[in-house]
Design a protein around this nucleic acid. Structure first.
Lengths: 239, 239
DNA sequence: CCCGCCCTGTGATCCCCATCACCCGAACCC
DNA sequence: GGGTTCGGGTGATGGGGATCACAGGGCGGG
């Protein structure tokens, strides 16, 4: 099958190979088939806006592959990246359920496959499929959980280096690759975006990273970031 | 019926007068009766710890009356108040659903009635009562929504006065009483607690409040706080 | 090839607010 | 009545980081 953006596309949830690994999608046949019936599969290039903060909820997006950043921004143009969504996550569920405006914006940062379900269809689906409802509750719990982590990081950190250290440690836990040189992280974000993740400025991120380098805690080679001394990083984090 | 702490107690959800107003409890007969069968009603004085951050989830608490503060704290002893929970809210649901440790601590700040449901019972209840599951999803959506607001406030505010102004405006929206002198708020929190809500120090809150007073934006009489000029407060808030 | 754009790196400056230190009044309780 | 505790009010000080300004480097596109 020809697939744009070099994406492996799976149009049929029933045949999806990775379904079992996905918190939400891992449901029994009836629920999956019913989902297949109402969803619209879409392919999106990097930088696609799925929905915008404040907009009335049109429905939910299930992130099948790729990644998306969830952001919120002030009228002054300052932007905060709330979360980088990974495959398997459901985007826009809370707003869709409550019928309130989306509380964040969602934008793909890689070519991505997403399954869209219209609001009415989704609500009907939840009402008729208890299993889907349960999985949605789990998804929402996860989302709340990670929002809570973000709150801790933003509210309890004393200094900006603590926030940055916490972010790096977070990355180690979820995508670190062990090498001889230390834990290798692929950094696909610019300093600007890292700054937006921890609520600071681009310059400060640059300065802190080179400070970490000077102290031999990390090393940067191209888009790879090596964590040389995890203990030192942890030492910066109080909480 | 004799009731400790001057609380009106309702032991029977089926007969609860305010049930219809409560997002979660407003369910049909079967779901309510099943809830009645597994819940334990408890009365708690001010300052009761319902659960503690990091603890394995024992179950959920439904806040029938009273209020509770949800907090998270660093090892250094710094505390952040994440939310003041109001009657009708379900506490500890996300941790209970995921089987992960509670992500916040919950402590009553008024004498409160709470209905407790053990984890296993709650999970069974969700599995057998689709309506309850749907209402739980709504509850979780609400929680996520308010967490998102908190993230915005913590991450996007430029200054502390902005955060404080935002908090006051929030209070106006949810519990303001219109009087000739302006919007009256009953402040039941100490400066210390206000500081913990916006991630700053007690001294700064004191200074900012007296600054606001000097600028005739607010006035304080005992535990009443009058918002004299809402527009001026809004002007401090950029987002 | 060279121009423009985006990302990174760094210096200088300034100000907000955390921190420490102390005082005061009110409530509370031996 | 005299401690004691708790909440509120204020001054002095210092540092962290936002802000502004500019320089270099990689990279794509005309």
């Amino acid at each position: 099958m020809p697939s744009p953006y070099n994406l492996e596309v799976e149009y049929n949830c029933g045949e999806c190979r990775v379904r079992a690994e996905r918190l939400f999608c891992n449901m029994g046949e009836p629920a999956v088939q019913a989902l297949d019936a109402v969803k619209f599969t879409g392919l999106y290039p990097k930088g696609s806006l799925l929905f915008v903060e404040g907009e009335e909820p049109r429905g939910i997006f299930i992130l099948c592959s790729g990644r998306a950043k969830l952001t919120t921004s002030s009228t002054e143009g300052k932007t905060l990246i709330v979360k980088i969504a990974e495959p398997g996550e459901v985007l826009g569920a809370s707003a869709t359920i409550l019928g309130k405006p989306y509380e964040v914006s969602a934008e793909t940062i890689e070519p991505s496959q997403l399954n869209f379900v219209k609001r009415d269809d989704f609500l009907k689906y939840l009402n008729t499929h208890a299993e889907a409802c349960l999985h949605t509750a789990q998804q929402l719990s996860e989302k709340y959980h990670s929002a809570q982590r973000e709150i801790r990081s933003l509210g309890l950190s004393q200094t900006t280096s603590e926030k940055l250290a916490r972010l790096l440690l977070d990355w180690c836990d979820r995508g670190g690759e062990l090498t001889a040189k230390g834990i290798r992280l692929k950094v696909l974000l610019t300093h600007e975006e890292i700054a937006q993740m921890i609520g600071t400025t681009r310059e400060t991120v640059t300065r802190l990273l080179s400070d970490f380098k000077k102290k031999k805690m990390i090393d940067v080679k191209g888009s790879s970031l090596f964590v040389l001394s995890r203990p030192q990083l942890e030492h910066l984090v109080s909480v």
